[in-house]
């Protein structure tokens, strides 16, 4: 856990090159999975992944280069929302290609990396014991259900049709 809080490092051109290559690898794997699972043409989905990778790249670059204290998640969300707005000229191009990449195809690849990455926490997990597991399960279940039930009540009160 000590890794959570230690010093920052500088971004170089070399670093950006690493980001681009990683995103390219990720895109190719996702498009192959997207083709096998959903039979979307690889060419179109590669363009879609290219758009998403570019948004990511701009977001992480802005987080590090701009003096504002804003997380890349926020930059990426804002850029993604803006270029897809129905009034934007970019909208039809972006939607056509990005819709070729299924969300679940991206997630499937993403979680493979997560699975390998979380192997590191395995020994700490085993040491924590069953009480921590029970509390964690309760925390996740009650947060999820609490959120779903409140959302449902508000949706019904504001008259949103199912």
């Amino acid at each position: 856990m000590v890794e959570l809080i230690d010093g920052s490092e500088n971004v170089s051109v070399h670093g950006i090159f690493n980001w681009i290559l990683l995103l390219a690898i990720f895109s190719v794997i996702t498009c192959i999975g997207n083709y096998i699972g959903y039979e979307h043409p690889i060419g179109d989905s590669l363009v879609g992944m290219g758009i998403l990778s570019l948004i990511t790249l701009i977001g992480v670059w802005m987080e590090r280069k701009l003096p504002l204290n804003i997380s890349s998640i926020i930059y990426i969300s804002v850029i993604g929302i803006i270029i897809a707005l129905p009034i934007m000229p970019t909208s039809s191009f972006v939607l056509h290609y990005v819709s070729q990449v299924e969300l679940l195809s991206i997630v499937t690849v993403f979680l493979a990396y997560v699975g390998i990455g979380m192997g590191k926490s395995w020994n700490e997990f085993k040491a924590l014991g069953w009480r921590a597991v029970i509390v964690t399960i309760l925390v996740i279940a009650s947060t999820y259900l609490g959120s779903a039930i409140v959302a449902h009540i508000i949706l019904v009160l504001t008259g949103v049709p199912v």
């Binding site: 998640i73 804002v78 850029i79 993604g80 929302i81």
Partner: peptide
């Protein structure tokens, strides 16, 4: 941590739409 960005971007495009 970098690939989270791609996932967020895909969700953001759906939100914008």
């Amino acid at each position: 941590m970098l690939f989270i960005g791609v996932l967020i971007a895909k969700l953001a495009v759906s939100s914008g739409q």
